[in-house]
Design a protein around this nucleic acid. Sequence first.
DNA 1: TTATCTGTAATATTTTTTATTACAGTACAA
DNA 2: TTGTACTGTAATAAAAAATATTACAGATAA
Lengths: 137, 137
Amino acid sequence: MLNSRFAIQIHIVSLLAISEEYITSEFIASSINCNAVLVRKELSLLKKAGLVTTQEGNNGGIKLIKNPRKIYLDELFTITYDGAELFAGNKNTPNPLCTIGRNINLMMSGINGRVEAGLLKELHRTSIADLVSDLKK
Amino acid sequence: MLNSRFAIQIHIVSLLAISEEYITSEFIASSINCNAVLVRKELSLLKKAGLVTTQEGNNGGIKLIKNPRKIYLDELFTITYDGAELFAGNKNTPNPLCTIGRNINLMMSGINGRVEAGLLKELHRTSIADLVSDLKK
DNA sequence: TTATCTGTAATATTTTTTATTACAGTACAA
DNA sequence: TTGTACTGTAATAAAAAATATTACAGATAA
Protein backbone atom coordinates (compact mmCIF):
# COMPACT_ATOMS: atom_id res chain seq x y z
CA MET A 1 0.00 0.00 0.00
CA LEU A 2 1.05 3.54 -0.71
CA ASN A 3 1.76 5.88 2.17
CA SER A 4 -1.04 8.19 3.16
CA ARG A 5 0.22 11.38 1.54
CA PHE A 6 -2.09 11.33 -1.45
CA ALA A 7 -5.09 10.65 0.78
CA ILE A 8 -4.01 13.45 3.09
CA GLN A 9 -3.79 15.94 0.23
CA ILE A 10 -7.23 15.01 -1.04
CA HIS A 11 -8.59 15.37 2.48
CA ILE A 12 -6.95 18.76 2.94
CA VAL A 13 -8.15 20.20 -0.34
CA SER A 14 -11.66 18.81 0.06
CA LEU A 15 -11.90 20.34 3.49
CA LEU A 16 -10.69 23.68 2.18
CA ALA A 17 -13.16 23.46 -0.68
CA ILE A 18 -16.12 23.37 1.68
CA SER A 19 -14.73 25.99 4.05
CA GLU A 20 -15.50 29.67 3.63
CA GLU A 21 -12.69 31.19 5.66
CA TYR A 22 -9.22 30.36 6.93
CA ILE A 23 -8.95 27.05 8.77
CA THR A 24 -5.94 25.93 10.79
CA SER A 25 -3.60 23.02 10.21
CA GLU A 26 -4.61 21.68 13.63
CA PHE A 27 -8.24 21.66 12.55
CA ILE A 28 -7.37 19.84 9.35
CA ALA A 29 -5.21 17.36 11.24
CA SER A 30 -8.03 16.64 13.68
CA SER A 31 -10.35 15.88 10.79
CA ILE A 32 -7.82 13.53 9.24
CA ASN A 33 -6.75 12.25 12.64
CA CYS A 34 -3.06 12.59 12.02
CA ASN A 35 -0.25 14.79 13.20
CA ALA A 36 -0.47 18.48 12.25
CA VAL A 37 3.14 18.51 11.10
CA LEU A 38 2.28 16.06 8.33
CA VAL A 39 -0.50 18.37 7.25
CA ARG A 40 1.78 21.39 7.21
CA LYS A 41 4.30 19.54 5.07
CA GLU A 42 1.66 18.79 2.46
CA LEU A 43 0.37 22.34 2.72
CA SER A 44 3.83 23.59 1.99
CA LEU A 45 3.73 21.70 -1.33
CA LEU A 46 0.18 22.79 -2.10
CA LYS A 47 1.19 26.37 -1.47
CA LYS A 48 4.21 26.07 -3.73
CA ALA A 49 1.90 24.69 -6.42
CA GLY A 50 -0.42 27.68 -6.06
CA LEU A 51 -3.45 25.86 -4.72
CA VAL A 52 -3.60 27.44 -1.28
CA THR A 53 -2.53 30.53 0.54
CA THR A 54 -1.58 30.73 4.18
CA GLN A 55 -1.86 33.43 6.76
CA GLU A 56 0.61 33.33 9.60
CA GLY A 57 -0.06 34.70 13.06
CA ASN A 58 -3.10 34.90 15.26
CA ASN A 59 -6.39 34.02 13.52
CA GLY A 60 -4.36 32.88 10.58
CA GLY A 61 -4.72 29.63 8.72
CA ILE A 62 -5.11 28.20 5.27
CA LYS A 63 -7.44 29.08 2.41
CA LEU A 64 -8.00 27.57 -1.01
CA ILE A 65 -7.19 29.93 -3.86
CA LYS A 66 -7.65 27.65 -6.84
CA ASN A 67 -11.12 26.84 -8.13
CA PRO A 68 -11.95 23.31 -6.96
CA ARG A 69 -13.57 22.64 -10.35
CA LYS A 70 -10.13 23.01 -11.83
CA ILE A 71 -8.25 20.93 -9.30
CA TYR A 72 -8.05 17.45 -10.77
CA LEU A 73 -6.73 14.55 -8.81
CA ASP A 74 -3.80 14.01 -11.16
CA GLU A 75 -2.44 17.38 -10.09
CA LEU A 76 -2.48 16.31 -6.46
CA PHE A 77 -0.98 12.96 -7.34
CA THR A 78 1.86 14.66 -9.18
CA ILE A 79 2.44 17.06 -6.32
CA THR A 80 2.62 14.11 -3.96
CA TYR A 81 4.69 11.53 -5.82
CA ASP A 82 6.41 13.35 -8.64
CA GLY A 83 9.24 11.22 -10.01
CA ALA A 84 8.92 8.48 -7.41
CA GLU A 85 8.62 5.50 -9.82
CA LEU A 86 5.92 4.06 -7.61
CA PHE A 87 5.57 0.73 -9.39
CA ALA A 88 9.20 0.04 -10.14
CA GLY A 89 9.65 -1.76 -6.85
CA ASN A 90 12.91 -3.31 -5.80
CA LYS A 91 15.82 -1.18 -4.64
CA ASN A 92 18.37 -4.00 -4.52
CA THR A 93 20.81 -4.14 -7.40
CA PRO A 94 19.92 -7.24 -9.41
CA ASN A 95 22.59 -9.59 -10.68
CA PRO A 96 24.18 -8.14 -13.84
CA LEU A 97 25.47 -11.58 -14.82
CA CYS A 98 21.90 -12.73 -15.43
CA THR A 99 19.95 -11.76 -18.55
CA ILE A 100 16.90 -10.80 -16.56
CA GLY A 101 18.92 -9.24 -13.76
CA ARG A 102 20.63 -7.03 -16.31
CA ASN A 103 17.35 -5.86 -17.81
CA ILE A 104 14.78 -5.88 -15.06
CA ASN A 105 15.28 -2.30 -13.95
CA LEU A 106 14.70 -0.98 -17.43
CA MET A 107 11.72 -3.30 -17.85
CA MET A 108 10.19 -2.11 -14.60
CA SER A 109 10.86 1.48 -15.45
CA GLY A 110 8.97 1.03 -18.71
CA ILE A 111 6.06 -0.61 -16.97
CA ASN A 112 6.06 2.16 -14.40
CA GLY A 113 5.93 4.79 -17.10
CA ARG A 114 2.98 3.25 -18.90
CA VAL A 115 1.07 2.59 -15.71
CA GLU A 116 1.68 6.03 -14.32
CA ALA A 117 0.58 7.74 -17.53
CA GLY A 118 -2.67 5.76 -17.47
CA LEU A 119 -3.13 6.55 -13.83
CA LEU A 120 -2.79 10.28 -14.33
CA LYS A 121 -5.24 10.16 -17.20
CA GLU A 122 -7.78 8.38 -15.02
CA LEU A 123 -7.23 10.76 -12.12
CA HIS A 124 -7.74 13.71 -14.42
CA ARG A 125 -11.35 12.66 -14.81
CA THR A 126 -12.20 13.63 -11.24
CA SER A 127 -12.00 17.08 -9.69
CA ILE A 128 -12.18 18.12 -6.07
CA ALA A 129 -15.47 19.81 -6.92
CA ASP A 130 -16.79 16.45 -8.15
CA LEU A 131 -15.75 14.80 -4.92
CA VAL A 132 -17.34 17.31 -2.58
CA SER A 133 -20.50 17.73 -4.66
CA ASP A 134 -20.99 13.98 -4.48
CA LEU A 135 -21.01 14.05 -0.72
CA LYS A 136 -23.45 16.93 -0.56
CA LYS A 137 -26.15 15.08 -2.44
CA MET B 1 6.48 3.58 -3.21
CA LEU B 2 4.98 0.12 -3.33
CA ASN B 3 6.82 -2.79 -1.77
CA SER B 4 8.85 -4.94 -4.12
CA ARG B 5 6.49 -7.90 -4.42
CA PHE B 6 5.12 -7.01 -7.86
CA ALA B 7 8.64 -6.46 -9.19
CA ILE B 8 9.74 -9.75 -7.67
CA GLN B 9 6.91 -11.64 -9.36
CA ILE B 10 7.70 -10.11 -12.72
CA HIS B 11 11.35 -11.00 -12.24
CA ILE B 12 10.54 -14.57 -11.26
CA VAL B 13 8.20 -15.21 -14.15
CA SER B 14 10.50 -13.56 -16.68
CA LEU B 15 13.38 -15.68 -15.50
CA LEU B 16 11.27 -18.80 -15.75
CA ALA B 17 10.13 -17.76 -19.21
CA ILE B 18 13.66 -17.81 -20.56
CA SER B 19 14.68 -20.98 -18.72
CA GLU B 20 14.31 -24.41 -20.28
CA GLU B 21 14.45 -26.59 -17.20
CA TYR B 22 13.83 -26.41 -13.47
CA ILE B 23 15.60 -23.57 -11.70
CA THR B 24 15.91 -23.20 -7.94
CA SER B 25 14.54 -20.51 -5.67
CA GLU B 26 18.11 -19.75 -4.61
CA PHE B 27 19.06 -19.13 -8.21
CA ILE B 28 16.09 -16.83 -8.70
CA ALA B 29 16.87 -15.01 -5.46
CA SER B 30 20.46 -14.47 -6.54
CA SER B 31 19.28 -12.92 -9.79
CA ILE B 32 16.93 -10.59 -7.93
CA ASN B 33 19.41 -10.12 -5.13
CA CYS B 34 16.96 -10.74 -2.34
CA ASN B 35 16.30 -13.42 0.20
CA ALA B 36 15.18 -16.81 -1.14
CA VAL B 37 12.34 -17.02 1.34
CA LEU B 38 10.70 -14.00 -0.27
CA VAL B 39 10.94 -15.74 -3.60
CA ARG B 40 9.40 -18.92 -2.25
CA LYS B 41 6.50 -16.98 -0.80
CA GLU B 42 5.71 -15.45 -4.18
CA LEU B 43 6.20 -18.82 -5.82
CA SER B 44 3.66 -20.28 -3.49
CA LEU B 45 1.10 -17.79 -4.82
CA LEU B 46 2.15 -18.32 -8.42
CA LYS B 47 1.77 -22.04 -7.96
CA LYS B 48 -1.67 -21.64 -6.41
CA ALA B 49 -2.62 -19.52 -9.43
CA GLY B 50 -1.46 -22.24 -11.80
CA LEU B 51 1.45 -20.40 -13.39
CA VAL B 52 4.27 -22.59 -12.15
CA THR B 53 4.92 -26.08 -10.94
CA THR B 54 7.51 -27.09 -8.40
CA GLN B 55 9.54 -30.20 -7.92
CA GLU B 56 10.70 -30.94 -4.41
CA GLY B 57 13.80 -32.89 -3.57
CA ASN B 58 17.25 -33.15 -5.08
CA ASN B 59 17.57 -31.60 -8.55
CA GLY B 60 14.15 -30.13 -8.07
CA GLY B 61 13.11 -26.54 -8.63
CA ILE B 62 10.53 -24.44 -10.37
CA LYS B 63 9.21 -24.48 -13.93
CA LEU B 64 6.73 -22.29 -15.78
CA ILE B 65 3.64 -24.13 -16.93
CA LYS B 66 1.58 -21.28 -18.33
CA ASN B 67 2.37 -19.87 -21.76
CA PRO B 68 4.18 -16.56 -21.22
CA ARG B 69 2.20 -15.09 -24.11
CA LYS B 70 -0.87 -15.54 -21.99
CA ILE B 71 0.55 -14.20 -18.75
CA TYR B 72 -0.43 -10.55 -18.65
CA LEU B 73 0.88 -8.23 -15.99
CA ASP B 74 -2.57 -7.57 -14.57
CA GLU B 75 -2.72 -11.21 -13.53
CA LEU B 76 0.51 -10.85 -11.56
CA PHE B 77 -0.66 -7.58 -10.09
CA THR B 78 -3.85 -9.20 -8.89
CA ILE B 79 -1.99 -12.16 -7.45
CA THR B 80 0.24 -9.74 -5.59
CA TYR B 81 -2.12 -7.11 -4.26
CA ASP B 82 -5.60 -8.54 -4.52
CA GLY B 83 -8.00 -6.50 -2.39
CA ALA B 84 -5.34 -4.26 -0.89
CA GLU B 85 -6.91 -0.87 -1.77
CA LEU B 86 -3.50 0.41 -2.71
CA PHE B 87 -4.49 4.03 -3.27
CA ALA B 88 -6.90 4.45 -0.41
CA GLY B 89 -4.12 5.50 1.90
CA ASN B 90 -4.75 6.47 5.49
CA LYS B 91 -5.52 3.86 8.11
CA ASN B 92 -6.40 6.29 10.88
CA THR B 93 -10.08 6.72 11.56
CA PRO B 94 -10.99 10.22 10.44
CA ASN B 95 -13.18 12.47 12.54
CA PRO B 96 -16.83 11.48 12.06
CA LEU B 97 -17.96 14.88 13.34
CA CYS B 98 -16.53 16.52 10.23
CA THR B 99 -18.29 16.38 6.86
CA ILE B 100 -15.14 15.40 5.05
CA GLY B 101 -13.96 13.11 7.82
CA ARG B 102 -17.26 11.27 7.63
CA ASN B 103 -16.98 10.78 3.89
CA ILE B 104 -13.32 10.56 3.04
CA ASN B 105 -13.02 6.79 3.33
CA LEU B 106 -15.84 6.23 0.88
CA MET B 107 -14.41 8.89 -1.42
CA MET B 108 -10.98 7.28 -1.36
CA SER B 109 -12.44 3.87 -1.87
CA GLY B 110 -14.20 5.13 -4.99
CA ILE B 111 -11.05 6.72 -6.30
CA ASN B 112 -9.15 3.54 -5.57
CA GLY B 113 -11.66 1.48 -7.48
CA ARG B 114 -11.52 3.64 -10.59
CA VAL B 115 -7.75 3.89 -10.52
CA GLU B 116 -7.25 0.21 -9.96
CA ALA B 117 -9.59 -0.72 -12.80
CA GLY B 118 -7.65 1.53 -15.16
CA LEU B 119 -4.38 0.12 -13.90
CA LEU B 120 -5.40 -3.46 -14.56
CA LYS B 121 -6.57 -2.53 -18.03
CA GLU B 122 -3.22 -0.93 -18.77
CA LEU B 123 -1.27 -3.86 -17.33
CA HIS B 124 -3.31 -6.25 -19.45
CA ARG B 125 -1.67 -4.77 -22.51
CA THR B 126 1.72 -6.28 -21.67
CA SER B 127 2.55 -9.96 -21.40
CA ILE B 128 5.63 -11.64 -19.99
CA ALA B 129 6.42 -12.76 -23.54
CA ASP B 130 6.41 -9.10 -24.61
CA LEU B 131 8.81 -8.22 -21.83
CA VAL B 132 11.32 -10.96 -22.52
CA SER B 133 11.14 -10.59 -26.29
CA ASP B 134 11.97 -6.92 -25.91
CA LEU B 135 15.16 -7.68 -24.09
CA LYS B 136 16.29 -10.22 -26.67
CA LYS B 137 16.23 -7.72 -29.48
C1' DT C 1 2.76 42.38 24.35
C1' DT C 2 0.40 38.21 24.56
C1' DA C 3 -1.87 34.52 22.36
C1' DT C 4 -2.24 31.98 18.26
C1' DC C 5 -0.93 30.87 14.09
C1' DT C 6 2.69 28.96 10.21
C1' DG C 7 7.13 26.78 8.94
C1' DT C 8 10.56 23.63 9.64
C1' DA C 9 14.14 20.90 11.86
C1' DA C 10 15.38 17.30 14.91
C1' DT C 11 14.21 13.28 17.17
C1' DA C 12 11.41 9.36 18.69
C1' DT C 13 8.16 5.86 17.96
C1' DT C 14 5.57 2.71 15.36
C1' DT C 15 4.75 0.00 11.48
C1' DT C 16 6.12 -2.31 7.43
C1' DT C 17 9.35 -4.60 4.77
C1' DT C 18 13.03 -7.51 4.19
C1' DA C 19 16.38 -10.85 5.86
C1' DT C 20 17.72 -14.65 8.60
C1' DT C 21 17.42 -18.93 10.91
C1' DA C 22 15.52 -23.19 11.52
C1' DC C 23 13.60 -27.30 10.37
C1' DA C 24 10.11 -30.69 8.49
C1' DG C 25 9.00 -33.00 4.21
C1' DT C 26 10.34 -34.73 -0.54
C1' DA C 27 13.00 -37.06 -3.94
C1' DC C 28 16.95 -38.25 -6.50
C1' DA C 29 21.15 -40.70 -6.85
C1' DA C 30 24.96 -43.05 -5.31
C1' DT D 1 19.17 -46.71 2.64
C1' DT D 2 21.50 -42.85 3.25
C1' DG D 3 23.37 -38.45 2.10
C1' DT D 4 22.49 -34.35 -0.43
C1' DA D 5 19.79 -30.83 -2.38
C1' DC D 6 15.66 -29.19 -2.99
C1' DT D 7 10.63 -26.99 -1.45
C1' DG D 8 7.51 -25.08 2.10
C1' DT D 9 6.65 -22.49 5.99
C1' DA D 10 6.99 -20.62 10.61
C1' DA D 11 9.29 -17.81 13.86
C1' DT D 12 12.32 -14.25 14.76
C1' DA D 13 15.53 -10.40 13.84
C1' DA D 14 17.09 -6.47 11.50
C1' DA D 15 16.55 -2.63 8.53
C1' DA D 16 13.91 0.82 6.44
C1' DA D 17 10.00 3.73 5.98
C1' DA D 18 6.13 6.09 7.77
C1' DT D 19 4.21 8.66 11.26
C1' DA D 20 4.21 11.23 15.59
C1' DT D 21 6.21 14.26 18.83
C1' DT D 22 8.77 18.05 20.54
C1' DA D 23 10.73 22.29 20.02
C1' DC D 24 11.19 26.71 18.62
C1' DA D 25 11.77 30.79 15.38
C1' DG D 26 8.97 34.08 12.92
C1' DA D 27 4.46 36.42 11.85
C1' DT D 28 0.34 38.95 13.06
C1' DA D 29 -3.97 40.15 14.95
C1' DA D 30 -6.27 41.78 18.95
